[in-house]
């Protein structure tokens, strides 16, 4: 067993581009769920709209990268508007179902044969990263001993972590302000807030749009770092995993989603590498009669499901959350 490569996989992914995608998605969810109490189960949809906004603008309309990014962000803001107008007046669990349904509709439409001319069918779109790659200042990858990244990863990480830091800064500034105070109050009791003369609907809409746009940013980053947009990447599982990351770190904490995403990817990659090694080779640690390597690749998701349940039951505030100040009253 090569523990070095397991540690390498775990750390490389904990700090790598994939963790950044999740961090952005989870920061958006933190604004929705952690601070405002909105159950958005369609974050994958916001990400997909951001990613396809970018890709369609650049591939089909030949627009430059900055315009593509703008299109992606505007598209996710528009999605928030379209979903929010009708559902923000409904019960919290209805918002959950409408957003999950909307995200599925988007994924199906993006991947459909009938819309292939625009969205590229199930293979999606690629060929929009020329500008992105040309801006890469790095000439080669890096190996720091316990982790290693390629040249492209390094570039994505540089931009990505700066964007994550800016989003965290924005969240911090907003949540210490009276605006954030209104959001946290809505999370607890929106009727009380309404009785004090605040337009609750407007605040919820602003929160939904802000979190959706940050999710869209996550989708755009996802598209750029893997140089393609594939509809099946934006399934509901993506939303569920982003929630898991958020809850690991702790909802309603500025850095909760970031730390949570890093831990999530550390565990997923570390466990993945461990079980992959344990079942491969001539004389595997775990014999094939116990589990095959295909089965072994599932263990991490089984543990993730179990972990999410246990986390929710025994430590709903996450690792860094304060039990007194969270949306989840699990007691």
């Amino acid at each position: 067993m090569d523990f070095g490569s397991i540690i390498d996989a775990a750390f490389s992914n904990a700090f790598g581009p994939q963790a950044i995608v999740f961090a952005l998605a989870a920061i958006g969810l933190n604004i929705h769920f952690g601070y405002t109490g909105l159950l958005n189960f369609g974050q994958a949809g916001f990400m997909a709209v951001g990613a396809f906004g970018l890709a369609v603008a650049m591939v089909r309309l030949d627009l430059p990268l900055p315009v593509g990014i703008l299109v992606g962000l505007v598209a996710s803001a528009v999605l928030a508007l379209i979903l929010g107008v009708p559902t923000l007046r409904l019960r919290a669990d209805y918002l959950a179902i409408v957003t999950i349904a909307a995200a599925e509709i988007l994924r199906l439409v993006f991947g459909a044969v009938e819309t292939k001319a625009v969205f590229g069918g199930s293979n999606g779109l690629n060929g929009f990263t020329e500008t992105w790659n040309s801006l890469n200042p790095y000439s080669k990858g890096i190996d720091v001993g316990f982790a290693s990244w390629s040249r492209n990863d390094l570039w994505a990480m540089t931009v990505g972590w700066v964007v994550v830091a800016l989003c965290c800064l924005l969240t911090w500034a907003l949540m210490r302000s009276p605006w954030g105070r209104v959001l946290r109050s809505i999370r607890e009791d929106e009727d009380a807030v309404r009785s004090l003369g605040k337009n609750v609907f407007l605040y919820k809409m602003q929160a939904l749009m802000l979190g959706g746009v940050i999710g869209g940013l996550g989708g755009i980053f996802f598209a750029l770092k893997q140089a393609s947009v594939v509809p099946s990447d934006y399934s509901t599982n993506l939303t569920f995993f982003a929630y898991t990351a958020l809850l690991i770190g702790g909802a309603a904490r500025v850095l909760g989603p970031v730390v949570g995403s890093m831990i999530f990817w550390f565990l997923i990659s570390g466990l993945g590498a461990f079980f992959s090694q344990a079942t491969s080779g001539i004389d595997p640690l775990i014999p094939a009669s116990v589990m095959t390597d295909t089965q072994a690749s599932l263990i991490r998701y089984i543990l993730m499901g179990l972990g999410l349940m246990l986390l929710m039951i025994y430590r709903p505030q996450g690792i860094f959350g304060d039990r007194k100040e969270i949306a989840l009253d699990a007691r």
Binding site: A173, L174, R176, S177, W179, R181
Partner: peptide, 11 residues
């Protein structure tokens, strides 16, 4: 004023 989105960002 601090309950408006953009002004709220700057103390």
């Amino acid at each position: 004023r601090g309950e408006k989105f953009f002004p709220s960002i700057f103390k």
